[in-house]
Lab assay of single mutants.
Amino acid sequence: TETYKYDDKREAEKAAEEFRRRGITVTVEERNGTWVLESK
């Protein structure tokens, strides 16, 4: 599991889209005002 942090929800979702395009499952969730993207 890799974790990436973003200040902006849009950025996180854009990154998530890129991962999914490569066939990687990711989750995006907000933690304490930071958007956390996790690849499984």
Rank of each mutant, 00 (worst) to 15 (best):
T1F: 14
T1Y: 14
T1D: 09
T1N: 11
T1H: 12
T1M: 13
T1W: 15
E2T: 14
E2I: 15
E2R: 10
E2P: 11
T3C: 08
T3D: 06
T3L: 13
T3A: 09
Y4R: 09
Y4C: 06
K5G: 07
K5N: 09
K5L: 14
K5T: 15
Y6V: 01
Y6G: 01
Y6K: 01
Y6Q: 01
Y6N: 00
Y6M: 02
Y6I: 02
D7I: 12
D7T: 15
D7C: 09
D7K: 14
D7P: 10
D7A: 14
D7E: 12
D7N: 14
D8R: 04
D8K: 06
D8N: 14
D8V: 05
D8I: 05
K9D: 02
K9W: 10
K9H: 08
K9T: 02
K9A: 07
K9V: 09
R10F: 12
R10N: 11
R10H: 12
E11W: 04
E11Q: 10
E11I: 07
E11Y: 04
E11T: 10
A12E: 00
A12N: 00
A12D: 00
A12R: 00
A12G: 01
A12L: 02
E13F: 10
E13N: 05
E13W: 08
E13M: 12
E13R: 03
K14Y: 06
K14F: 08
K14E: 11
K14S: 09
K14R: 11
K14W: 07
K14I: 11
K14D: 08
A15D: 03
A15M: 10
A16G: 03
A16C: 04
A16D: 00
A16L: 05
A16Y: 04
E17F: 04
E17C: 08
E17W: 05
E17N: 06
E18W: 12
E18S: 07
E18N: 06
E18A: 09
E18P: 01
E18G: 07
E18D: 09
F19L: 14
F19D: 01
F19Q: 04
F19A: 04
F19Y: 08
F19M: 12
R20E: 07
R20K: 08
R20T: 06
R21L: 10
R21W: 05
R21A: 09
R21S: 08
R21P: 00
R21N: 10
R21K: 13
R22E: 07
R22A: 11
R22H: 09
G23W: 02
G23Q: 02
G23S: 02
G23Y: 02
G23P: 01
G23K: 02
I24S: 04
I24R: 06
I24H: 10
T25K: 11
T25Q: 14
T25I: 14
T25M: 14
T25C: 10
T25N: 13
T25P: 10
V26M: 09
V26S: 02
T27C: 04
T27A: 07
T27M: 09
T27P: 00
V28T: 03
V28I: 13
E29L: 13
E29V: 15
E30N: 10
E30K: 08
E30S: 06
E30M: 09
E30I: 08
E30L: 14
E30W: 15
E30C: 09
N32G: 08
N32S: 06
N32Q: 06
N32D: 13
N32C: 10
G33D: 03
G33A: 03
T34R: 11
T34W: 15
T34C: 08
T34N: 09
T34Q: 15
W35H: 01
W35A: 01
W35Q: 00
V36A: 03
V36Y: 14
V36F: 12
V36M: 05
V36E: 04
V36I: 13
V36W: 12
L37N: 01
L37I: 13
L37Q: 00
L37V: 14
E38G: 04
E38A: 11
E38K: 11
E38D: 06
E38R: 11
E38S: 12
E38F: 14
S39N: 10
S39E: 10
S39G: 07
S39I: 15
S39M: 15
K40F: 14
K40Y: 14
K40L: 14
